[in-house]
């Protein structure tokens, strides 16, 4: 039928399946449409992205759903930023965007063009570790190390923001990074050490 050419493939796929299945299950049309929607995979969109990470430019095609964290870990092999909760509750994925600490698991890669991303891999200068990385080693700022890249990225920002006047202030402004080993005292000490430099 001529009419059908006006519909997108996506809409047609959904509607025709929904109507077909309706013949077998007597339910409200709208409720059933909502049910069926869950089983039909809509078209995926790949978009070209130009992103700058650790001062290096990448041109890549990515699914619109890609988060910055998945882009780093799965597409660019920058596995420093960790996937802890993937829901913005643990801080293990913390990176800097335009110099500000953010959660890469809640940042869509599609929003990044024109911005500069810095990850834990971009902190050191060749073999010369960043002072915060040195401090974490010197002060035992970690045990298992899983939260450490996020802790260090957050700690660098914490010092830059000037939230280091007291232990209480450091703890408050580091509260977005959880450490299940309980290395908090070492982390606070590391931050105090760098802040005093």
């Amino acid at each position: 039928m001529k009419q059908e050419y006006n519909f997108s493939r996506r809409f047609f796929l959904k509607t025709s399946s929904a109507l077909g299945a309706l013949a077998f299950i007597p339910k409200g049309v709208k409720a059933f449409y909502e049910e069926v929607k869950n089983f039909i995979v809509p078209a995926k969109e790949q978009i070209p992205l130009k992103v700058s990470i650790n001062k290096k430019s990448y041109a890549i095609k990515a699914d619109t759903r890609t988060t910055l964290l998945d882009l780093l870990r799965e597409d660019l092999n920058l596995t420093g930023a960790k996937k802890g909760c993937d829901h913005g509750q643990c801080g293990a994925c913390t990176v800097h965007v335009d110099g500000q600490r953010v959660l890469s698991c809640l940042t869509l890669a599609a929003t990044l063009p024109g911005k500069e991303v810095t990850t834990i891999e971009g902190l050191a200068n060749g073999d010369q570790l960043h002072p915060m990385q040195e401090a974490f080693i010197a002060c035992d700022g970690f045990q298992c190390g899983y939260c450490t890249p996020g802790q260090i990225m957050s700690a660098v920002a914490c010092v830059k923001e000037g939230h280091t006047k007291s232990i209480a202030e450091i703890k408050e402004f580091m509260s977005g990074n959880l450490c299940r080993c309980g290395a908090y005292n070492g982390i606070v000490e590391s931050i105090q050490k760098v802040a005093a430099q």
């Binding site: 913005g88 801080g91 913390t94 500000q100 600490r101 953010v102 959660l103 809640l106 940042t107 957050s154 920002a157 914490c158 923001e161 939230h163 402004f173 509260s175 977005g176 990074n177």
Partner: peptide, 9 residues
Amino acid sequence: GASPQIRNM
């Protein structure tokens, strides 16, 4: 509210 990272976003 929230954490410094979330407040930045």
